[in-house]
Computed example of a mutant assay.
Amino acid sequence: MTAYSPLPYVVFGVTGRTGAAAADTLLRCGHPVRVVVRDPARGRLWAERGAEVAVADLTDLGAMTRALDHAQGAYVVCPQHYGREDLFELAELIADTTARAAVAAHVPRLVALSSVGADRESGTGWIWMNRLFEQRLGAAGVATTFLRAAYFMENWMPMVAQAVRSGVLPTFLAPPRRALPMVATADVGSAAAALLQESGTATGIVTLAGPKDYAPADVAAMVSATLHKPVDVAVLPESAWSSALADAQFSRAALAGFAEMTRGLNGAHIDIGSDPAARAWAGTTTLEQVITELVRRRQ
């Protein structure tokens, strides 16, 4: 019988998809969990499930240290605030605060959400914030597994909504038949939970993709099959990216970061296999499962 520590696993990002999946997995396994939220109201559902709730702003060193105190491990994230012009500077502050708090709280091990492409020094746009997160935590000396996730399958949500309405799936990714690694956010959370439970305190890197690679044309075919009507793919030229993202209310700095990241993906500069030091993991959720659910929500 497995002996569980009375100390909790601390999970950040539970108001998002990956943190919620990590906390859910750990609770289902019978582990004590402490979730960290900025708004106490967002922790009530977790408290009802038996989790401890800590309240902390990610830039507040004292609150972050208390949230991480007396823990057997933590899943940490650096949320990206796309509406702010200073999103890169804010990411640096969050990374520094997280690293300093982990040291002050003597956390024995971390799992940190990162991204494929974080090994690249430049040309990655938004992913630079993940690279910075890795660098700050690595320099702090806390044993950390950096979980470099592939392109989130759920990123297709707004494009799928347009395809349901119009029969045309817009995409920023090109060419439309080139397959890329993609992963479901539920698999990211469950992988984070599994990595937290690994024995040992070595720092390392894990890349996480889905069970297979997919192309935009595959997404269109899945939407078509679910709707039982034709769906075409429309590759958006870079000149149309800003207007296509108007509803997202990205800042100018965020739009520039998105453009650089997308160029990196389309030009294969951002590549899941570019770091030979990484362990490759694969999730089990297929893109068909995610797209089918996204379509059904929009019908």
Rank of each mutant, 00 (worst) to 15 (best):
M1G: 15
M1T: 15
T2L: 11
Y4F: 15
S5I: 12
P8G: 06
V10N: 10
G13N: 05
V14A: 03
V14H: 01
G16W: 06
L26D: 01
L27D: 09
R28S: 11
C29A: 11
G30F: 11
H31S: 08
P32Y: 01
R34Y: 02
V36T: 10
V37F: 03
V37K: 06
D39T: 13
W46P: 03
E48P: 03
G50L: 05
G50M: 03
G50D: 09
V53S: 07
D57W: 01
D57F: 08
L58H: 12
L58A: 10
G62E: 15
G62I: 06
M64V: 09
A67Q: 07
D69S: 13
D69K: 09
Q72Y: 11
G73W: 06
G73D: 08
P79T: 01
A91M: 04
A95S: 15
T98E: 05
H106I: 09
L110W: 11
A112R: 02
S114G: 15
S115D: 14
V116P: 11
V116Q: 14
A118D: 14
I127T: 14
W128N: 03
R131T: 13
F133S: 00
R136C: 14
G138Y: 11
A139K: 14
A140V: 12
A143D: 12
T144F: 09
T144W: 03
T144H: 06
F146E: 08
L147D: 02
L147K: 00
Y151D: 10
Y151A: 04
W156I: 09
W156L: 13
Q162G: 00
S166H: 09
L169I: 02
L169C: 04
L173K: 05
R177W: 14
P181R: 05
V183A: 04
V183P: 08
D187V: 06
G189M: 09
S190I: 01
A191C: 13
A192R: 00
L195P: 03
A202V: 11
T203E: 08
V206E: 00
G210P: 08
A215E: 06
P216G: 08
D218M: 08
A220D: 13
V223F: 06
A225W: 00
T226R: 10
T226W: 00
L227D: 02
L236C: 04
A240D: 15
A240L: 11
A244C: 10
A248N: 07
Q249L: 09
R252V: 10
L255S: 10
A256F: 02
A259H: 03
M261C: 03
H269L: 15
R279H: 12
R279T: 14
A282C: 13
G283H: 07
T286F: 04
Q289W: 07
V290M: 05
I291T: 04
T292I: 04
L294N: 00
Q299D: 12
